[in-house]
Design a binder for these strands. Sequence first.
DNA 1: CGTTGCTATGCAACGGGGTGCATAGCAAGA
DNA 2: TCTTGCTATGCACCCCGTTGCATAGCAACG
Lengths: 185, 185
Amino acid sequence: MALEHAILVSLLEKPGSGYELARRFERSIGYFWTATHQQIYRVLKRMESDGWVDVRDVPQYGRPDKKEYSVAAPGRDALSAWLYEPTEPESVRHDLAVKIRGAAFDDPAALISEVERHRQAHTDRLAHYLAGETRDFGEPPADGPLNAERELQHLVLRGGIAYERMMIAWLDDVLATLARFDAGR
Amino acid sequence: MALEHAILVSLLEKPGSGYELARRFERSIGYFWTATHQQIYRVLKRMESDGWVDVRDVPQYGRPDKKEYSVAAPGRDALSAWLYEPTEPESVRHDLAVKIRGAAFDDPAALISEVERHRQAHTDRLAHYLAGETRDFGEPPADGPLNAERELQHLVLRGGIAYERMMIAWLDDVLATLARFDAGR
DNA sequence: CGTTGCTATGCAACGGGGTGCATAGCAAGA
DNA sequence: TCTTGCTATGCACCCCGTTGCATAGCAACG
């Protein structure tokens, strides 16, 4: 389980409330690690009782007060320990692949619209990533040597971009193949 | 949830026992949908009581008897219905990405060996896929028009190959970036 | 003859993730 | 004023996935 570690990283990048974390998990961090707000609140509570994070009540005007979390020393240590501990490569779950193999026993061409939906979602995400890349990493930082946080965030983003490009290319292959079945009948 | 659908597809490709399914989920289907044998037995039992699959006791000599499952008409219908029903693009879970962003708050260069482990795992899988592609799809089938099952299995395998190639390229990017931090100190 | 190892099936229990629902403050517009 | 909508936190429940354990047949090896 790495949700707690993903939260630690996010809080190190910037302290915030459970609600703010939940919104970060809809963007940024959420591109490679998803979580709902209930999960986050639950885990935050556990992390707090374990001493991994500190809490601070922040009164707000014009909106409800919030609890701002930040990483405590034991949390930093826990993250450190996890960072260099071997993790198994993720297990994949691609329902589209299941559907494609299943389509052999039905009408393959009928899958086309579903595949096109997925292709659209991936082109949207790619556009979103590329816009973010231009915005956040467009010009060199010029703040001296190496800014680790910035460099590594860019590195992860490049991974997302590569992933989306690969998916779009494969989905084009899928569409071309399905079209041959459509024509073949 | 699509485990039941993955099982249906696998049983349509070839009827078999829970044990055989579990081994298929360690290869082939398992490349894009994982499951343990306990999950499979549990779901098979539910699918049987729902009438999705038929069971046949197969006595065996030299080894324990087995129950061979095959897809029944309601199972086929359920698969059909699911195939063309919109599915959300999968939510991603890349702990490596979390680790990389987290490394900004620790020693980035210490991640190198972990990344190399992952790179090795991906090159292994790629080699495995490529060997399977040559073995199973090396020469054209020559059995007339379009063999949907074969074509679509190859299509999915090409997706796996593209994924591994992309990952390896990105991991090279990761290693190059981490090396710059190593040299920078 | 005992151990190891593979085939084959299954139970029990735990924990994480997801869905639905509830509450509450406050702003803005109908 | 009432409703809608956003911020903010939380509970209860269920299902799924994972781990550990158990059983049992049979083969092969030492």
